[in-house]
């Protein structure tokens, strides 16, 4: 056990190319998905927060529910859509990094949208009357609101990135964990552990834990700083 851990650390210390490639792909896929998910999620969340339409409560409940969507189930849905006989089968995207980005985007968008909706809605109920009395139209009021909530919204995006980096079910199903092509940290850990290559699993596990802890620390620090700076 001790030697396994040493082997793992040695892999990291020597910047093992296989480890680096896997980590790099993880970042590419999850950052890409989070960027797309943020674009859609922040807009969607803001819109739901300030718009008035019938069924708004139902949409909110649905969105909150989708925050807890199991990645495996989402993986299956995307798999069915992208598989040869599926509606998007002709694109030939299954078992590619693009498919993984699509799956993770669908995973993080509701999370970011739901967090943004809550943040913006709270701010909207605080500021609405005041901004209206100051002559703000809705567009300007929303822009002011978003600026005021900027730190909370960044925290929502970081939460999305953390979820994307650490999920395994969706990328496993639509990416297929192909060595050197669609293998990311979580899928490699799952496979290598099953195969008995514990040093590689542990090395990747250490990286993954560091990333997730760092993201949370960043979110925490940002919140603290914003609280101290702006109250």
């Amino acid at each position: 056990m001790g030697s396994t851990l040493l082997d793992a650390i040695s892999l990291l210390a020597h910047l093992d190319p296989q480890v680096l490639a896997i980590v790099w792909l993880s970042f590419q896929v999850s950052l890409g998905a989070t960027a797309l998910g943020s674009l859609v999620g922040l807009l969607l969340g803001t819109w739901i927060a300030v718009a008035e339409f019938p069924g708004r409560a139902a949409v909110t409940v649905l969105l909150n529910g989708m925050m807890g969507m199991p990645p495996v189930v989402l993986g299956v849905i995307v798999y069915l859509a992208l598989s040869r006989s599926g509606p998007l089968g002709t694109l030939g995207l299954l078992y590619s990094p693009t498919a993984m980005v699509i799956a993770q985007t669908l995973l993080v968008t509701p999370l970011i949208a739901a967090l943004a909706r809550q943040t913006v809605e709270d701010a909207w109920s605080d500021y609405r009357i005041e901004l209206t009395a100051l002559g703000f139209d809705r567009r300007l009021a929303v822009l002011t609101l978003l600026h005021d909530c900027r730190y909370s919204l960044v925290v929502a995006v970081l939460a999305g990135l953390g979820r994307a980096m650490s999920e395994v079910g969706a990328v496993m199903i639509v990416g297929g964990n192909i060595d050197g092509f669609t293998r990311v940290m979580t899928t490699a850990i799952a496979l290598e552990t099953a195969k008995g290559d514990l040093p590689l699993s542990i090395a990747l596990g250490l990286v993954l834990i560091s990333v997730v802890v760092a993201l949370n620390a960043l979110a925490f620090g940002l919140r603290q700083w914003a609280m101290r700076r702006y109250g």
Binding site: Y127, L134, G135, F136, L140, T144, D148, Y230
Partner: peptide, 16 residues
């Protein structure tokens, strides 16, 4: 707003 005193003082001027 969660910003400076000066920014808050000028808030009502934004729509103008």
């Amino acid at each position: 707003l969660r910003t400076t005193v000066a920014d808050n003082a000028g808030l009502g001027l934004r729509p103008l």
